[in-house]
């Protein structure tokens, strides 16, 4: 067993175990913090897939941005003073059936398909300059639209969250 395989299984176990904590934990704060390790594990998998830029982006955007936002949401919408962090589940039995069927189908398809692997696989060199070049050439329009979407989301989120309530 070489080093690559050991690191792969390490990050896979970190990702899946902490994702299971996110999904099954009764305490919402535990879920939020387990999500941190899920994002770290996924970033590690990105590194193993030669996506260095994506791994750093994952850490900056997901861990530095989205996760902090989610923890803010937890703190602002749970009854922190009464330490009432427990959260319930619903429709557990149908969900277990549906999700196990879904997981079985997905893993079965992934397992049984004879995937064609390209010969000119992405190498070890840095990907950031090439991705930047692709953003400004073949993906220029999606890139510009994404920037507009981010601006709209910024303004919209501020507007929705800061709406003044009428004095009652």
């Amino acid at each position: 067993m070489d080093l690559y395989a050991i690191i792969f299984y390490l990050f896979s176990i970190v990702t899946l175990a902490s994702a299971a904590v996110v999904v099954f934990s009764k305490n919402i704060v535990h879920s939020a913090f387990a999500l941190l390790f899920t994002f770290f594990g996924v970033a590690g998998l990105y590194v193993l897939l030669m996506a260095d830029f994506l791994a750093v982006t994952q850490l900056m955007i997901y861990v530095g941005g989205i996760l902090v936002l989610l923890i803010f949401g937890v703190m602002l919408t749970s009854d922190v003073i009464n330490v009432q962090m427990k959260t319930g589940t619903m429709q557990t039995l149908p969900a277990v059936l549906i999700v196990s069927a879904l997981a079985g189908t997905l893993v079965g398809v992934f397992w049984s398909t004879d995937w064609k692997v390209a010969q000119n696989a992405v190498g070890f060199e840095s990907t950031a300059p090439k991705i930047g070049q692709m953003f400004l050439t073949s993906y220029l329009l999606p890139f510009e639209i994404a920037s507009v979407v981010l601006l709209v989301a910024l303004i919209g989120a501020a507007l929705i969250a800061r709406r003044e309530r009428k004095a009652s």
């Binding site: 899946l16 999904v23 937890v74 959260t87 429709q91 969900a95």
Partner: peptide, 23 residues
């Protein structure tokens, strides 16, 4: 692909069963 399939299923399970909107 199999790792991502399992991760996807866990996410769908959270969406289906959790009562708290943030979860």
């Amino acid at each position: 692909l199999i790792i991502s399939g399992i991760l996807f299923s866990l996410g769908v399970f959270a969406i289906l069963t959790r009562r708290n909107a943030i979860l």
